[in-house]
Design a binder for these strands. Structure first.
Lengths: 353, 353
DNA sequence: CTGAAAGCGCTTACAG
DNA sequence: CTGAAAGCGCTTACAG
């Protein structure tokens, strides 16, 4: 009979409800000790810790997030802050953040932002306070917003940025997760040179993105290392979107002496280059090689498939979340981390595949 | 001096802290009445409601989510459930859900799922219980997972699905947000016929997706309306991904009598078709017209730009969230809603642009 | 290294 | 239509 009652509509939620007192009783300790173990606090004897962990597992205990938040005057939530990144970038990053976050008994919330908003920092600080957020992860271009980061530092809000470290961050102890964009761009440029092409154009990314500058630096370094001069005519300003790739390519390919290769600093702009090449009846890579950066799904879905640089976006998200939570807990030794990139050679360049 | 103290590191969070008692005092009512207003409960005199709303606004009051959750034994959170949709689809939908959710004093959490997991329903029910989720919105293909939906109904969990309504839902009072996929596919097929092409192939989507079936039905209806017979040779099974589009196109274009147009039931597969056409040196749309469905950013970034069907994904997310919250509050009259689609004619077909 | 007491800011259940 | 009391399940601040 009892079973019937339990299975009735709406009663499903009452089937079990394990609270901290149950775990404390099961483990033979106080609730405060259970609390210490669940929050990975130090100063618990290993034997006690294990006893509690086993009891919690046996009972299927899940701490009540609301109670934790109310008592602690915080949310156990971290926010992912973004301003219209590409869909692929955002979903990959958030998937990494989410997984790491859940593993640590934290939650993740999403917060769209507007880089250009003059009150950006105030608004974000208000949101953080209202929602009692424990910390934030900043993605490009917010990760390069000096005013915002300064506000976060002033307010003592734990944060991690997904971007190469800016010089001013070194003194503030800011945490970064990134890929060595400069080295990657240098290596890719060297690869193109290795296919026998020397007249290589470059489409820069949004100037406010730290990574955009790094990539351009890598390109220049590779040219210099090969003893080549940089031809200013071959460098165009883009904004990491398809349209600016189209515009840059139109200018580049209309040159009296057009480039034999175009290195766009992300895949979307490279797709724009391909678009223009096709319109002009140019063969890729026979007439012109094209290279991107990011290895988004797009790079496989356009034709020909794009040679590009792969960043481990999902891992970067997980790493950022773990570093942030470690800092929130003031445990351990979180330090800025560079993750490995990888050159992906496909069919838009002429070298060996 | 006080200001100095308040602006010190870490003290920033203490600048203001308005709680329900402050609002009650300001408005001259009890905290229970404030609570009623904040939760949009009925049975509050309009004058009282307004008094409270003004007091709350004046003080900048934001209810403490943790306290609400603890006292109410629920989270005021809705979850967006998904299983690897395209990145563009997910970010658009979640952006709509998020905006609607915040406007109603609710929060949104993300929950990746695995359609094929035999314990899917149990796992989701456990998550819902552990996190005290108030409701869930299901995206394809989860929205077409009969077992999952039945479990939700049995457990009395409020839910909304983003998918055309299945017949069995009508009796259960299930809520759907969708676009009339069948009518859209029919209209698009008619458009292709209108450009003078009659040998139109169709690449079907994942069979478990309700929308995939609807689209195929629309294609068949348009053929029939034009007095044309369906040629089984011209219908291929795809799975909504690039690779299956490639495979289907290879078979189709190798036919002794290849189609003059290919209607892929989403953009990703259409990108696969374009890829194969380019490899074979076929001109699009001169040699073969290609059509997609969804109007993802991809459709503008491939070459030639794709003729496709636009769904208002973001609005669908907002609508789903509002319907769900209305059902959670048991207020009003939420009903399944069809949103308008739109044909987007670009350069992969031969008719007037 | 561990625990007993108080309290976080709301909603529920009840009363009127 | 409105309100007074109790309590949700944790963490904090303190004690030892």
């Amino acid at each position: 009979m009892a079973e019937t009652v339990l299975r009735a509509y709406g009663d499903w939620a009452n089937v079990t409800k394990v609270i901290i007192d149950d775990v404390a009783a099961e483990a033979g300790v106080s609730i405060k000790t259970v609390s210490r173990v669940m929050n990975r606090e130090p100063n618990v004897r290993p034997a006690t810790r294990q006893k509690v962990e086993e009891a919690a597992k046996r009972l299927g205990y899940r701490p009540n997030a609301s109670a934790r938040g109310l008592a602690g005057n915080r949310s156990y939530l971290i926010a992912l802050l973004y301003d219209s990144p590409s869909a692929a970038y955002l979903t990959n990053l958030q998937s990494g953040v989410l997984a790491a976050t859940q593993a640590e008994n934290y939650g993740m919330v999403l917060q769209p932002c507007q880089y250009d908003d003059p009150h950006l920092a105030d608004k974000i600080l208000t949101t953080i306070r209202d929602a009692r957020l424990d910390g934030v992860v900043l993605t490009p271009p917010l990760s390069d917003h000096r005013g915002l980061i300064d506000s976060l530092v002033d307010a003592g809000i734990p944060h991690v940025i997904v971007s190469p470290p800016a010089t001013y961050m070194e003194t503030s102890g800011g945490l970064c997760v990134y890929v060595d964009d400069k080295a990657a761009a240098q290596e890719m440029t060297a690869y193109i040179l290795g296919t026998g092409l020397t007249r290589i154009a470059f489409i820069k990314g949004t100037p406010t993105h730290g990574a955009a500058l790094q990539r351009f630096d890598g390109y220049k370094d590779a040219l210099k290392a090969a003893g080549l001069d940089l031809d200013p005519e071959l460098v165009k300003q883009g904004y990491f979107d398809f349209e600016s790739g189209v515009k840059a390519a139109e200018e580049l390919l209309a040159l009296p002496q057009p480039p034999s290769a175009i290195f766009a600093s992300n895949d979307e702009m490279a797709a724009g280059v391909l678009h223009v090449a096709h319109e002009r009846g140019l063969k890729v890579p026979d007439d012109v090689s094209v290279v991107g950066f990011d290895d988004t799904p797009l790079s496989r879905q356009i034709w020909p498939a794009l040679t590009t640089v792969r960043q481990p976006i999902r891992q970067m998200g997980g790493c950022a979340a773990r570093m942030l939570i470690s800092r929130i807990r003031q445990s351990g030794d979180a330090a800025s981390t560079a993750l490995p990139y990888e050159l992906v050679i496909r069919h838009s360049t002429g070298g060996p595949k």
